[in-house]
């Protein structure tokens, strides 16, 4: 089967592999340590999956904000901020 029509590039393939790896890790974590709703700094009780979703959404908007405001080609800065914010969200959210 030819996947030329999907117009794959290395960066997008890496992006989807990372997302897939995160989902697999979350599934394994759920089997090993089932999640319980808890209350952190977010205004509502959240599960681990909720916090991951919010972290990914936050990362997307941090990247978009950076792209809108800066002319830099490298996304290292928003990626670093997103990882830090995501870690905070997962731990204390």
């Amino acid at each position: 089967m030819d996947f030329q029509w999907m117009a794959w590039t290395t960066p997008t393939a890496v992006f989807f592999l990372v997302i897939a790896a995160i989902l697999v890790a979350m599934t394994l974590a759920e089997i090993r340590f089932p999640t319980a709703e808890r209350r952190g700094f977010l205004p509502m009780p959240t599960t681990r999956g909720d916090r991951l979703f919010l972290s990914l959404m936050l990362a997307a908007f941090i990247h978009l904000g950076f792209v809108a405001l800066s002319d830099a080609q490298s996304l290292a800065v928003p990626l670093g901020i997103s990882i830090f914010a995501g870690a905070l969200m997962m731990r204390f959210g």
């Binding site: 999907m6 117009a7 794959w8 590039t9 960066p11 792209v67």
Partner: peptide
Amino acid sequence: LMTVVNYSVQDIFGPGQRYFIGVDWFR
């Protein structure tokens, strides 16, 4: 959705004629 993501980072002129341009289209 994956295909749309792939398209969003390339300048596509036709089959086999595509060039990676990063986040320029988003900008």
